[in-house]
Design a protein around this nucleic acid. Structure first.
Lengths: 343, 343
DNA sequence: ATTTAGCACTCTACATCTGCGAGTGCTATT
DNA sequence: AATAGCACTCGCAGATGTAGAGTGCTAAAT
């Protein structure tokens, strides 16, 4: 729905939103007229506010309180936000420094990026690691751990490692494991992990393999190895949302923390943020995770050297400092993409 | 300090503690006399309570409220606790079921054990994975990832895997990597990871190696690989502590969550819980993590198949259901040890 | 036709007050 | 030594009162 507003209404709406973002308290007509040194009086502001309320952009908690922006207002505000604060040099410096200091490797960078996001925005940082399954297969290794236990190690071309302990029906000698891994490495060369999985399943059903004991055994083991483990999601700075006055209520808090504990579910919900390029903004009930809790989500994708994609962003209250958070998320996603391409 | 009490004083103290654990509200003299069907009157109870207060076992929040047990009282209660509730069959069943259902492998079992601890106790579950460094070295592998990048994969005999991406000054061909890994596998055979690290450092300084380009390169790379990564600590059911009325205050909550976010620090503090065998109980200010926040910690060690040790337990408010939590922690640590020995 | 000033009205947050009841400590009694 | 009785204390919850912020309407001004 397109919202049409006169220049003045718009100016007032923006003032209200910004004041509310800053103070978390309902803002009254006189406050707007005063603080923003408007050319007109509080009475005029009142009239305009009444209009805006009718349009569904403002509500008042009760008769004699000021007005509070609705989700619709935030949406309008964000959409028409021309004056995006640029990211400051200081923030850039901090982000770069922190992401570099992290222990080498993709997970290290991502975790640190999440922390940096959180500390710069003062909300919660969120990072979804690129899905292992869409990464390109690089190598599989088998290591014999005691009798009837084989450790399968799967390496992707991004240097990600997934390992899995597999029980085998009987003891497999080392030299046979070597033959098996050679066979499989050959089979899966150049495929993504998920394609590799399909190939394995297809091969398992093929005639030629069915009667080759070693091959079918190799396929069975590797099938377990390529089965996706838990995908990784980093939530950093959870304690920070306790700073927000709107979450000081215990019941609400609990709801939120419970949501965050179900990482699998979150991941599922976040997947739809990965479809579009650029910074995505979800306000209030638009937010895929934790509906109805008055949270907003700002995300952006990042890419690794071989074009698998991950997601990073910030979760905070609907009343969020959009104008500063958006450029931070934007910059961070570019930065992370760049750092990852260096790996 | 040893506390000596008459049988009656003791009976009353226990009644107060148990009532307070159940209700989280100060308990008065008449409540004790009534609810526990004592053979004496509330007036007598009052006299006894006055004594107990003088001994520092009780305090009253204000004049006309009931009494609340102090840390000292909990300590006494726990120490003299003969009537440890046995773990129920139902609880056993649940624990076993949940720990088994977890994905194979040590981390899977530990994570699930943490969750089970949390849901059975209704407090927070905590699990510290056995230190990788005291595990026994099993094998090292190098995989070439692009030019000048080598992925070093370190496997312990428990089937734990640590991997690290290493930058190399120049490109190393695959066949040379193979030679290197053979050399190192031989070098570190049978040692623990931390011993292996010492050996590597010693070797790096030895005369014979210093002038062998390949060997010294191998040692340099592996030195990075054996450097300990982050140790793992699982905190499960954080949301559950929000159920406790004593933590409904936002400021307190924040303090607690901030503590839990610094996992490195926690790990450090928890290390002293690993020294003794059996169930360890830390009450209030005795608790190594988060002093002064009115929390108690109950832990017990578990061991893997080759005697590396980890820690698991429960964190909750000082007012904790000790008599049921203690056997749960005890049983879980045995269970986990057993499950791990099967790996 | 807007904009503005003025004013009556509304509603909440905060403070003050009050009675109730839970709980205590002391004392006299058994 | 244990108990019953009693006066006393104190916090809590509900009631009452008040100040102030904010609104909406109307009439005057531009």
């Amino acid at each position: 729905m397109v919202v049409e507003l006169s220049a003045r209404s718009r100016q007032i709406l923006e003032a209200i939103i910004e004041d509310y973002i800053a103070t978390a308290e309902p803002v009254g007509s006189s406050a707007v007229a005063r603080r923003h040194a408007m050319t007109f009086s509080s009475a005029t502001v009142r009239n305009v506010m009444a209009n805006l309320e009718e349009m569904g952009l403002l509500t008042s908690p009760h008769t004699s309180a000021g007005r509070v922006p609705t989700e619709k207002a935030y949406r309008f505000y964000v959409d028409s936000l021309v004056g995006l604060r640029k990211i400051t040099r200081e923030e850039k410096r901090l982000l770069i420094q922190r992401c570099r200091q992290s222990g080498a490797g993709l997970p290290g960078i991502l975790k640190e990026a999440g922390r940096a996001l959180s500390s710069l925005s003062n909300y919660m940082g969120i990072v979804v690691a690129p899905s292992f399954t869409s990464d390109i297969f690089r190598q599989i290794e088998f290591i014999r751990i005691g009798t009837r236990k084989v450790l399968a190690i799967l390496v992707s071309s991004n240097g990600l490692v997934q390992n899995r302990l597999v029980d085998t029906s009987d003891d497999i000698p080392e030299h046979e494991l070597l033959v098996m891994s050679n066979y499989l490495n050959d089979l899966m060369q150049g495929l993504t992990i998920s394609q590799a999985r399909d190939r394995i399943l297809a091969e398992l059903n093929s005639e030629k393999v069915r009667f080759d004991r070693m091959m079918s055994r190799a396929l069975q083991i590797s099938e377990q190895a390529v089965t996706t483990g838990e995908e990784e999601i980093f939530l950093e700075g959870q304690a920070r949302i306790l700073d927000q006055p709107e979450f000081s209520d215990a019941a609400r808090m609990k709801e939120i923390f419970q949501t965050f504990e179900q990482k699998g579910r979150m991941l599922h919900l976040l997947s739809r943020c990965m479809n579009a390029d650029g910074v995505q903004i979800y306000i209030g009930s638009e937010t895929p995770v934790s509906h109805s809790a008055g949270m907003s989500l700002i995300t952006s994708r990042f890419t690794t050297s071989n074009n698998t994609i991950g997601l990073l962003g910030v979760i905070g209250p609907t009343r969020m400092g959009y104008s500063s958070v958006i450029p931070i998320v934007d910059y961070t996603s570019r930065l992370v993409s760049r750092l990852l391409s260096e790996i």
